[in-house]
Write a protein that binds this DNA or RNA. Structure first.
Lengths: 239, 239
DNA sequence: CGCATAATTGAATTGCCTCAATCCTTGTGG
DNA sequence: CCACAAGGATTGAGGCAATTCAATTATGCG
């Protein structure tokens, strides 16, 4: 096991949590959230640590509170497809039934809440709003996955990268991290496996956007969106 | 409007429906299904008729009973991405919130049940199993969309087509249509826009599979799966 | 039976990927 | 504190595969 030992903050951690209003717990008010907290185990992951393996029995579900996770699957010959990056407030286990359909690894050191599925199911029966929120998050995830099909199927490399930057910025904004500088904790290889490209093509696409002055690249993990409007045009958003 | 005028079968159509055990109505037993039938309007669509437009307010949801629908979205410059084909028993409106995220058109003449969202919401409140089934179908759709990301992102053209044939055969089997001959009502252009390819590349991929004797093509809309195992290997399923 | 649309096949081009080298940052040990 | 090692990112050159452009064949409908 390569994650830190579980710990539980005794001082009403949930009420002070950064993602109290974004995550699954937002379905419960301050009185009821204790029930969720009671079945929760806070855990931490080192960078690149594996949380769940594709095909493993789905015994726990998770809510990410800090850091970033990548969801991926491997083809027999080693090709990898990353189907999404989880940001704080996101939930892991929305689509899975009895086994995990995807592997989940930490991109950077991450913190999350871990719940046994059986007890989570019990809580959903007790608090309908919890179940409703899970359903809502599933629908949102479905829309995201479908948007991604457009990106993967019909966009050219530069367009894919532009789209990726805009979506990432948007999600960061939704999580409270507004501003024109986007944090990209993942590697270029991760981005490539997410967008269906090679590392080289991703790098070249970044360079193209930089040369056109649509973005700045202070360092590989930070991108400044200089011209959001032009980026949207490149990404094929609206006319 | 290019669909036939609505009609209602007076003789308990739901109980005799082909997809009674697959569609949303499977959540209700024969006593309760009348409540669903009461708010239902049976409609028919001509081939290529548009059922809903991307961006339109989501006032009705649908359950396909016969034929086939394609879900698609357009980029400003005309590029099209088909995100899925709906087969009998499938539900339209799973992911959408207040507006439809995708357009839906009939591939061939199709029949479906139409429900006003408000009344469907009421029924979901009255029959929790109905809501649960919707949630289940949403999760399934999410898994399908993610599987599709792998196909779009990491498979070569022939692999994409092989995968498409196998998935289509599998879904037809789940709907009761077993056998090694797959029905492909959609055009090559539809398949291309689904797999992120051009019409020509799709056609060439079919030819390659045919030359290798993995499939037969009695006509463009019927494919016989000659060697399922070899097809699975081509599609990158398992080792 | 003829037209319009769809599907297939062919030739040429473009652009992404492959292979390879260099640069840069980061962290480690001397 | 500096040198070095190691992994990631970027840049360059060349090949190949999917696309584009174009023509032919097949299919289906009036």
């Amino acid at each position: 096991m390569n994650w830190d030992r579980p710990h539980r903050d005794p001082c009403h951690a949930c009420l002070a949590c950064d993602v109290r209003r974004q995550a699954i717990c937002a379905a419960l008010d301050d009185q009821d959230v204790g029930a969720l907290e009671a079945i929760m185990t806070a855990t931490a992951l080192d960078a690149n640590a594996t949380l769940v393996h594709e095909g493993d029995p789905r015994r726990r579900v998770y809510s990410l509170t800090g850091g970033m996770l990548r969801l991926s699957t491997l083809l027999p010959d080693g090709r990898r497809q990353i189907t999404g990056f989880l940001m704080p407030g996101d939930y892991l286990g929305l689509a899975d039934d009895d086994t995990y359909a995807l592997s989940a690894e930490a991109v950077v050191p991450s913190q999350l809440c871990s719940f046994p599925v059986a007890q989570m199911d019990g809580l959903m029966a007790r608090f309908p709003r919890l179940k409703d929120r899970l359903h809502l998050m599933t629908r949102t995830a479905l829309r995201q996955a479908r948007d991604n099909q457009i990106v993967l199927g019909r966009l050219a490399p530069v367009e894919k990268v532009a789209s990726f930057l805009l979506v990432t910025a948007q999600r960061a904004a939704a999580a409270g991290q507004a501003g024109d500088v986007v944090n990209l904790p993942m590697t270029r290889a991760d981005i490539a496996d997410y967008l269906g490209l090679t590392v080289e093509t991703v790098s070249r696409s970044f360079t193209k956007l930089k040369v056109q002055d649509l973005i700045h690249l202070p360092d590989p993990h930070h991108v400044t969106l200089v011209d959001r409007h032009a980026l949207q045009a490149v990404a094929g958003w609206s006319a």
